[in-house]
Design a binder for these strands. Structure first.
Lengths: 285, 285
DNA sequence: CACGTTCAGTGCGCTAGCGCACACAGAACA
DNA sequence: TGTTCTGTGTGCGCTAGCGCACTGAACGTG
């Protein structure tokens, strides 16, 4: 086995396969931009079915082949889709944060994925049961159309990863990865050991040590026992390959965020029980 | 520039940007399994809008950022989505043959892709105009649901490519690539120079020469000036990495092919003009 | 037929990243 | 307070794959 399985290796496994702790009180929660992009009346309809859960780092949400029981809309946590090979080597397929959702396979109709989903950075997430989710997007089109666009953003991210894996150095990829994580994080602080980053990028731990060392010497980050503080974001962007910018730009294009002024772009009169028909026009935005 | 742009390099460019020749007579055409999977009454509805076109090898169907004018349902040709980097290096994101379609970005709502689409192997394809296509899948759900599943198959393929690029040798990847192409080809014959394969896999031409040389010595293939004949398919499968099998299996799961006995699984009475509503149940198959 | 072009094969030096082994310091727990 | 983990840093030999330069054969076209 050249690499460890998933986000931690066998011997020091901290994989939680249990159920998440449900936060009854909802003390504080950043928003999920995907949910936020839905018109208010849809959000209202969904609210009773959304459960805010705490996700501890390392928790496995999906195993390859599992029938997905729920979907997740992260707020301040970061989730990661990893493909784990037969020999245990792994590679990150995509990152999901408050800009997206986990479980696209469900509405795509596949019911399961061939990758593993793990919590890369602990935090909170909205959770919705499969059944409710399916009913929602099959009866109403707002969510379907939004999720379709999100899917394309996901595809873009994956496509870029293919090319990046092939052509860019570990240094560049590390920068790209940190930037992607940073965008999904509420601070300039990442909780992540070099070992885990190595598994995610599918490289040796020592390579990360070396690259991170360089970045540290350049004063771009400070790294101490699983805690990265990003000191110079612009510097990282310079050292990163084009891949970060491409993905960012395309994601912004596909999933523009509401300005505060236009709180709900599509204002829709009353009837939340109405069953919608997709109109060709709607596809255009 | 370490690699040439797209499927051929600058100086000996044979990229066709012109319009395809429309085959008026339709002399012979294999089918497209995606179209074939639709119920007969849907196929009938679509038929007048499907144009069978010949696609010459090397033709560029989409450039990154282009607004897509049509979608393609290949019959006996093989299309390839490539990401081309700033420095001209490229990597194949996915292959599309008679099992799929080109232009998923359209129904996902993005209107454009960040990759280039080229004809990898000449042949025929059905073409449909964007407008018709959008109307179809926005008014009727059969096609939408089918395409969603296809999208997941596509995602699986990409995910696998990410991991494969990271962990497997060029030898293995070449085998995988040939098998994927073979599945989409009607014979055991691939028309492809080593130069082009190199661009697709994002490696050096010389590396392909070497790998292909090995395979030839083993008696698995015979290679002569852009013509590969596969002599021992099982042998290739043995040498290939797990990635081929994983993608194949998942694609078959998501897009099972009709048995001859059940020519149209969903038999639907009459009214082809009816506007359908998606039912939660339908998502389950 | 001669000539240029396209495609495949080969040799060689170079380096990024791998695998392995081991040292060491902060944290954690007895 | 020692002992045991857990996370980093380092060194070293190895190899897959790169870049480059060049050969030679097959093909196409005048």
């Amino acid at each position: 086995m050249q690499h460890s399985t998933g986000l931690s290796n066998e011997k020091n496994a901290k994989l939680y396969h249990g159920t998440e702790s449900v936060t009854a009180d909802i003390p504080y929660a950043d928003k999920n931009y995907l949910l936020d992009a839905l018109p208010e009346y849809v959000q209202k309809r969904l609210l009773p079915n959304l459960e805010l859960v705490k996700l501890p780092r390392g928790m496995v949400l999906y195993e390859p082949g599992d029938t997905l029981k729920s979907v997740y809309f992260p707020t301040n946590c970061i989730l990661s889709m990893l493909y784990v090979m037969e020999d245990g080597a792994s590679a990150e397929i995509s990152v999901v944060g408050n800009e997206g959702m986990l479980g696209a396979a469900l509405f795509l109709g596949g019911e399961s994925t061939s990758s593993r989903a793990v919590v890369q950075s602990a935090g909170q997430s909205y959770r919705m049961e499969t059944k409710v989710f399916k009913t929602e997007f099959s009866r109403h089109t707002e969510m379907l159309l939004l999720l379709l666009r999100y899917t394309q953003a996901l595809i873009t991210q994956m496509a870029q990863t293919v090319a990046c894996n092939r052509h860019h150095t570990i240094d560049q990829q590390l920068c790209r990865w940190m930037l992607l994580s940073l965008d999904r994080s509420s601070s300039n602080h990442l909780v992540m050991t070099q070992e885990l980053i190595a598994n995610i990028l599918g490289v040796r731990r020592e390579s990360i040590t070396e690259s991170a060392g360089k970045l540290q010497k350049l004063g771009l980050i400070s790294y101490h026992r699983g805690h990265i503080v990003v000191l110079d974001r612009a510097g990282l962007e310079k050292l990163s390959c084009e891949c970060y910018a491409v993905v960012k730009k395309e994601t912004d294009r596909l999933l523009p965020r509401k300005k505060c002024s236009e709180k709900n772009t599509i204002s829709h009169p009353g009837d939340t029980e109405k069953t919608d028909i997709i109109h060709a026009d709607m596809i255009n935005l």
